[in-house]
Each structure stands twice: as structure tokens, then as C-alpha cells.
Write a protein that binds this DNA or RNA. Structure first.
Lengths: 213, 213
DNA sequence: GAAAAATTTTGACAAGTGTCAAGTTTTTCT
DNA sequence: AGAAAAACTTGACACTTGTCAAAATTTTTC
């Protein structure tokens, strides 16, 4: 039992096994967090969503923070390429728009619980410095993801992009977050409305216009 | 001791006294929540930020949820008129813009902890149905507050508003939230950047333009 | 000023928390 | 197969949590 010096002089297959189990437990943590939220998630609850008992968590993770950080990183890996297929496939402005809006709607429907976990963790970051670095990095990755789409829009229209990547991301994120809350509150029009809003905003953003005098 | 039937047949001054203390304790709760965040705020901690001991909280509030709801409502009353002075005073587009951006910056600097509390509570709403109604109502009030400003912008330019109130609110809220995280993380350029972003976005939104073909 | 009511404190409760150490079981290696 | 290492379970610890009832205190009422 050397969970600390584990990565030294250990056969690669051993290390893989270790990492695999870590990933498995991190997955259980994600499941639990997305179900209960950060404030109500306990280690025992996480263990119950896995095949193991609560003690094993301290065999694979230093402490609770370590586990949650691992979970967040794992979450990240899955979602930062979510729209890349859309960008690659689009042949026209309307193509890209339709594809993007469809992808937004789909992830809202299928992964709403994961999204609420993300906003919960990011809010924790406003209080707890422990998660800040990782959350900032993930946030940047999401910004880049959105920016890739916006660059493609600009390519297809020929007009230059005047709004900064971080601002566009923040706005679309705001619309997405608003939709998530409505969607989880049972509003059936939430997704349609978000699609209309995002469409309009992108059209406004990607077209040049003079600011009023 | 009739904390339930209290409002019946009680002299108004008594009821006021009761409401006053409730407000006082709710204020202590706000203080604590904005300092520690929802996940780490306990009733004993709240009591320590007041002049009383923890037991008194159950004299004035049914339970923890009741207390927090009361706090949120109290928070609301203070902030939904934040920008109304700006709207009233502005004589020109640039006037309104400058005033709004200055007000945004000031509340970001002065009340950052309260803002992070708001985003924390709103995230809780994604999991807990208890706060949903109140948070939705407050969110709507904030949307109205922003809309009053945007209507004024439209008045001053003469152009009609094409983006919906909820969409504009969501976008500005997204920019504000992003700034808050950066600001609390110690980024000195966060506020300036937000001001520039908000300015650009409003100018794009309040000017008519054709969506690209 | 005594009785009654309202207010506040104190201390306890059951339940839940993160953490960890001492076992038990399983796997790996020779 | 037997020893050693790894993986996992169990049960406990010190502490915190929301809640509440009983006692102590203050305020009001007559």
C-alpha cells in the first residue's frame, strides 16, 4: 500500500489499473454530484454509487478535494470537443447555425444534470480557491470550443469577428444557463426559446454594424 | 411563545418588532452566506454573525430553508432598483452608457460577495426545488431592471429593440458572472474588460442589422 | 410589584461528516 | 504453493449538522 509513491517504479500495467479505478470512482463522484449537488454530496454517497465501500476512496484519493478535482478533469475531457463535429461538417452559414443549435438542444436534453453540476462547481469556485485553477482551465477550454464555432461563422460570412472570444462565450453561456434553469424547472419552451435567442444573437454579432451616435 | 399564530390578534408594534428581528437575523444570514457560501453555512455560524445564540433562529424561523428564503427576499429588495437612478438621469445614449457601465463597475467592486452569494443560491436552485419560486421571481425582477435600461437605450437611438428582454438579461448576466469570477480571482483587468464587452454588445444589440445570408 | 407572556440561552439528541487505522480478502510474483 | 504486495472492508474517531425542549431571562400587562 503505497498510494503516494505509486507512480515510481511500478509496472505500467499496474499504474493503468490504478488510474482505471480512479477514473471509475471519479465517475461515481460525477454521477453523485450531478444528482445531489456539491453541498449534499458525501463520500459515503459517492461510494454507494460505485461498487465499493466508502473506505476505498481514501486509498485512491488523498482527500475529498482530490477526488472532486479528478472528477472535474474527467468531465472536461468529455465535453470540450462537443461541437467540433458540427464545425467540421458545416458547408454554409445556415448549415453551421442549424447544426450548432441542434447540438445545444441535444446536450441540454441529454446531459442537463451534468451541466448543472458544472455551474454548481463553478459557483463553488467563487468561494473556494481549491478548485479555481482547474475550473479556470476548463472554462477556457469551453471558451475555445465556442470560439472555433464563431471563427467558422466568420469564415462563412466573410466578415471579421469584432466581439472577443471571452465575451461571446460569456453571453452564450448566460443564455445556456438561463435555459438550463427553465428546462429543469419544467418549462417545455425553454429549449426552443434558447435556440431562437442564440440564433438572433449570433446573427447580430457576426454582422458588422455601426454603433449608434 | 406562539411563533406560528403570531400574526393574529397581535398589536402592530409587536408584529413589527418580530419582523424587525427576523430582518436582523436574515441580514446575519446574508452576511454569512456571502462569506462562506451555501455549502458551508450553518445555523450556528449565522448566529455568530448576529448578537444572539443559535437557538433563537428557531424562534423566528421554521427551519433553515425558511431563513434562507427570507434572506433571499431581503437581498432582492435592495438590488432590483440599482440602476434606476442611472436610467432616470441619462440625457443621451453616451450618458446612459457611461452611467450604466460605471454602476456595473461599482457594484462589482463594492458588493462582490453579495453577487457571488446570488450565483451560488441560483445554482442551488438547479438541485433544490425549495428555492425555485423565489429565485425565479428575483431573476425576473433583475431581468426587468435590465430591460428598463435597454428600453431607454432604444428610446435614445430611436431604433426598436429586437432582442428579447430575457435574452439581453441572460447575456449581460453572463458577462457579469464571468467578470465576477475573474475579479474575485484577483484579475485587475476584469472590470475594465467587462465594461468594454458590455459596451460593444449593447451597441451591437441596439443597432439594426441584417442577418447574413 | 406580582403574574403572565415573550424572548433568549443552554444543553442535549440523533444523524451525518471526512478521515484514518487495523483488519480481511484478493491478486501477483517467484 | 507460499510469501509478499495490493486492494478492499470494517469500524471507529472527533467533529459538525439541524432540530428541539427545558430552563433562564427579559418585557409586558394588570
Amino acid at each position: 500500500m503505497q498510494k503516494v509513491t505509486r507512480l515510481d517504479r511500478i509496472s505500467p500495467q499496474r499504474a493503468d489499473k490504478f488510474a482505471e479505478r480512479r477514473a471509475e470512482l471519479a465517475e461515481a463522484a460525477l454521477q453523485t454530484l450531478s444528482e445531489l449537488g456539491y453541498a449534499r454530496t458525501s463520500l459515503r454517497e459517492i461510494a454507494q454509487n460505485s461498487e465499493f465501500t466508502h473506505g476505498v476512496l481514501h486509498y485512491y484519493f488523498r482527500d475529498k478535494v482530490d477526488l472532486i478535482l479528478c472528477s472535474v478533469r474527467q468531465y472536461k475531457a468529455r465535453c470540450v470537443t462537443r461541437y467540433d463535429r458540427v464545425t467540421a461538417d458545416a458547408k454554409s452559414y445556415e448549415d453551421l447555425m442549424t447544426g450548432f443549435l441542434a447540438a445545444l438542444a441535444q446536450t441540454m436534453r441529454d446531459e442537463a444534470h451534468m451541466h448543472r453540476l458544472w455551474y454548481d462547481i463553478r459557483s463553488q469556485t467563487l468561494f473556494e480557491t481549491a478548485f479555481r485553477a482547474d475550473v479556470a482551465e476548463l472554462d477556457k477550454s469551453l471558451e475555445d470550443m465556442i470560439w472555433r464555432i464563431m471563427r467558422r461563422f466568420a469564415e462563412l460570412t466573410g466578415e471579421p469577428q469584432s466581439v472577443s472570444p471571452s465575451a461571446i462565450y460569456a453571453m452564450i453561456d448566460g443564455l445556456f444557463q438561463q435555459c438550463l434553469l427553465r428546462h429543469l424547472s419544467g418549462d417545455p419552451r425553454a429549449i426552443d426559446q434558447m435556440q431562437a435567442d442564440v440564433r438572433l444573437v449570433i446573427s447580430k454579432i457576426t454582422s458588422s454594424s455601426e454603433p449608434p451616435a
